[in-house]
């Protein structure tokens, strides 16, 4: 569906995006992750044809962006960061204008606008100037604008910024629903958003792709470690250390907290072996009381921090 090859963008001397390559298939929901200034927005802007790459090539459904920008723009719906729209236009007038430009015919237009108004929850503000809407409503109007012509590819730059928690859940549901048939690319720096909506993650750091893959493969590839948290009563740190360190697969043991006779420790383990049984067997022979035991797989947050550390 989308094929990007050696995409590079320079702003004067500053290299914002450096030799990026990826292929996106139909029906994927791709999350573009990265710290501030990593090149997420620049990448999206190049995909939509707003910016011309300094070098490299983009093909969408076989169309080249240099030769057929109009055809590509017809396939895409784009919501720029913070939804910049005309402030003095009414929401309805604006959607009407977008529908005209997108070539919806008169009969279909009104129906489509109403469907989108319901979907995005903006029926209440249809007759307000966009500039007077709250940030969340602006964002929704932007989303309606992007989905106007029922595009095959939806590109969203930080779609949930400025929304309240309820709205975020709603928007994520909408994105997921669209993603069943369409291709969605969204950028964000909210990690839980990617975990909740995307089936593929591309992490960008300093203009380069540092990770690309499904959530599971990403978690496995990063480090190959997992954590076990233990909370014990009636136990001495030294004894715990000698007992548990002898279990095969434990790399490290760290004390987290001692508090009123409770001892909390963290075990860093190799992901090749599940050691929870061994812990139980060991503990049966002691008089420690187990208050808590839980396992934590590598979270996206850890992977993200690992990959985007400043060096």
């Amino acid at each position: 569906m989308i094929h990007a090859e050696n995409l590079t963008k320079y702003y004067h001397d500053l290299c914002a995006v450096d030799q990026i390559q990826f292929d996106i298939q139909k029906g994927e929901i791709v999350g573009l992750l990265g710290p501030n200034g990593a090149g997420k927005t620049t990448t999206l802007r190049m995909l939509t044809g707003y910016l011309r790459p300094s070098s490299g090539n983009i093909q969408v459904k076989g169309y080249n962006i240099e030769e057929n920008p109009l055809e590509i723009k017809k396939l895409m719906g784009y919501l720029p960061e913070s939804a910049p729209l005309y402030h003095d236009m009414l929401v309805y007038d604006y959607l009407n204008y977008v529908a005209d430009i997108r070539g919806l015919d008169e009969g279909r237009k009104d129906k489509r606008i109403h469907t989108l108004a319901d979907l995005c929850g903006i029926s209440r503000v249809m007759h307000q100037p966009i500039g007077e809407c709250s940030k969340g409503y602006k964002q929704r109007v932007g989303l309606a604008h992007a989905m106007m012509a029922d595009p095959e590819i939806l590109i969203l730059d930080e779609p949930t910024s400025g929304l309240d928690p309820n709205q975020i859940v709603e928007i994520r549901d909408i994105i997921k629903r669209i993603g069943e048939e369409k291709t969605v690319i969204l950028s964000t720096h909210i990690l839980s958003e990617v975990e909740a909506t995307c089936n593929r993650v591309i992490i960008i750091h300093q203009g380069k792709i540092v990770a690309d893959g499904g959530m599971e493969t990403l978690k496995q590839s990063a480090g190959g470690e997992y954590l076990i948290h233990l909370s014990l009563k009636n136990a001495e740190m030294s004894a715990v250390e000698t007992e548990l360190k002898s279990i095969e697969g434990v790399i490290r043991l760290e004390r987290v907290d001692v508090n009123g006779g409770h001892l909390s420790v963290k075990l860093v383990c190799r992901s090749t072996r599940d050691i929870r049984e061994d812990i139980y067997v060991k503990m049966k022979n002691t008089d420690w009381l187990l208050l808590e035991l839980y396992q934590e797989t590598q979270s996206l947050e850890n992977i993200f921090r690992e990959l985007t550390k400043e060096n």
Partner: peptide, 14 residues
Amino acid sequence: NVGSYETLLTLPVT
């Protein structure tokens, strides 16, 4: 200034 230039240019217009 508002940034709507970006929305305008990504609509199918030349």
